[in-house]
Amino acid sequence: MIRSAVLLAAGHGSRLRASAPYKPLCPVAGRPLIDHALCGMAEAGLTRAIVVLGYGAEAIADHLARRRWPLAVETVMTRDHHEPNGVSVLAAAPLLAGEPAVLAMCDHLVAPALYTRLACTGAGDGATLGIDRRVGHPWVDPDDVTWVRTEDDLIVDIGKGLAGADCYDTGVFAIGPALFAALGSFGAPSLTDGMRLLAGEARARVVDCSDLDWIDVDDPAALAKAEAWQLARAA
């Protein structure tokens, strides 16, 4: 089982600026998004998290330093938070030193079991993505989500507004050296760029997580849905 995680927390989060100056610190049911992610990772059995920072790095690092976490937390800076998210993924590579990791987005609130499933599935000879086949789910914005087209357990294509897609990208991956190599072949890659390259080599796989809840907390409407989910879960 994979024990390390990479958590991307470098973006601007401009659509949630009214709720928090920095998206990772946006409260959902009384806890910042980054707290939900780190505690969920620990609950899933992960023992180490590398948090990639960029926009608002000082405030987020201070938040991390002021708390005791149930897993080891390290931080690293992305090269430039204006660049695509693949650049942030690459920033974590030296700290992993070739070890596999569960990769997640700080603004994706997920059931801890989703992290566990990717940690247990592993990256194989490329990378594995947790997908959701519940197309039309009310928590998912079809214009904002990353779509995936699959054949059996292989990714055929991935991207926004993808024709012929049959599932959603949940934002949780199992990754290893192959993805870092793929991303490194671009100048300023997105994560989708790296996954597309691996897909072309039949090294990008999926694991079905349609039975597990998750939501991309990217705007006020999604934040309201996430609040309702977490409050119902707590009750």
Rank of each mutant, 00 (worst) to 15 (best):
L118V: 03
A127S: 04
Y115V: 07
P189R: 01
M195P: 07
P70G: 06
W147P: 02
A228P: 03
V206F: 10
P100H: 06
G45S: 00
D153F: 09
G30N: 07
V156K: 12
M77A: 14
V73P: 12
D141P: 04
D107F: 07
A93D: 14
Q230F: 02
G98L: 06
C106Y: 10
G171Y: 02
V51S: 05
E99H: 15
V51H: 09
P21C: 02
G124A: 01
A113T: 14
H108I: 11
G13P: 07
E227N: 09
L129Y: 05
P112V: 04
G130V: 06
S14D: 01
G54R: 00
G161D: 05
A111T: 04
A92F: 09
V89Y: 07
S210T: 10
Y22T: 08
D153Q: 14
W139M: 09
G13A: 01
D107T: 08
A232V: 09
V206P: 08
A232M: 13
D141S: 11
A65L: 14
P70W: 05
A101C: 15
D216Q: 12
A181P: 01
G161E: 06
D143W: 09
R205A: 04
H36Q: 04
Y115S: 05
G200N: 07
T170K: 09
T47Y: 08
M41G: 13
G122F: 02
S88A: 13
N85A: 15
E99R: 15
G54K: 01
R133G: 06
T75C: 05
F173I: 13
A57G: 12
E99T: 14
E201D: 15
T78I: 11
L109R: 15
